[in-house]
Nucleic acid binder design. Sequence first.
DNA 1: CAGTATCCAGACCGATACTG
DNA 2: CAGTATCGGTCTGGATACTG
Lengths: 109, 109
Amino acid sequence: MEKKPQTSGNPSVSHMVENIVGCKWSMTVLAMIRSGTNRPGAMVREVDGLTAKVLNERLAKLIRFGIAEKTVFPVTPPHVEYRLTSFGEKFVGVIDEIERLQIDLDQTE
Amino acid sequence: MEKKPQTSGNPSVSHMVENIVGCKWSMTVLAMIRSGTNRPGAMVREVDGLTAKVLNERLAKLIRFGIAEKTVFPVTPPHVEYRLTSFGEKFVGVIDEIERLQIDLDQTE
DNA sequence: CAGTATCCAGACCGATACTG
DNA sequence: CAGTATCGGTCTGGATACTG
C-alpha cells in the first residue's frame, strides 16, 4: 500500500507537490494526461519502464489529491480515460513555471 | 553515496525539482536558508529530527544544483554560512507559486 | 483493456561514533 | 562547530502472474 501523507484535514499543496513531484513517474503521467495520452494502456505503451501497477498507484494519488478525475465508459472491452480537474490545471501551471525557469538557467550559463 | 540523477549535460530543472522537492528535509533546509537560519548548527538545532549527516547531504545537493552557495570563515571555531544563489532565488520563486496555489484551493472548497 | 496481489532488490535516511 | 563513515530498518517500485 502507501504511506499516509497527512494526519487530517486538507492535504496542503506543499505536501501534494512533495508527494507528487518526488514520486517516480508522477510527472510523466501528469504530462501524458495533459497531452492527451489519457488511457492507461496507451500510457504504459508509451513510457518504457512504466508498469500498470505503478501507473495505477500514481493515478490513484492524482485522483485522491483532486488533480485528476477518471471516466469509465461501460463498454466491452473496458474504456477508461483520465483528465485533469480544474484544480489539476492550476497545479500543472506550477510545473510550467518550472519549465520557464529552465530557460533562464540556459541563458545564464 | 547517492544516485546519479542525470546521465550527462546540465541537470534539467525538472529533475532538480524532482530531486529536491521529493527529498526529505530539502524544502525545510531551503526555507531556513531563506529565512536567515543559514548555519548548519543552527539548522540542526532548529529542526527536530534533522541530523547533521542528512543536512550535509541536502546542502551538498543544493550546492551541486547551483541553488545555494557556501561561505567558510577561517576562524576558530569554524564558521560556515549558506545562502541562495541568484538562481536559487528564482528557484524558490517557484515554491512561492505553490503557496499561492494553496490559497486558491482553500477558496474553492 | 483495466486493475490487483505478491515478492524482493535496492534506495533512503536515522542513529551512532568519529575526525579536524 | 563542521563534517564524514558506517550500519541497519523501512519503504519504494519493478517483475510477474492473476482476475474481471
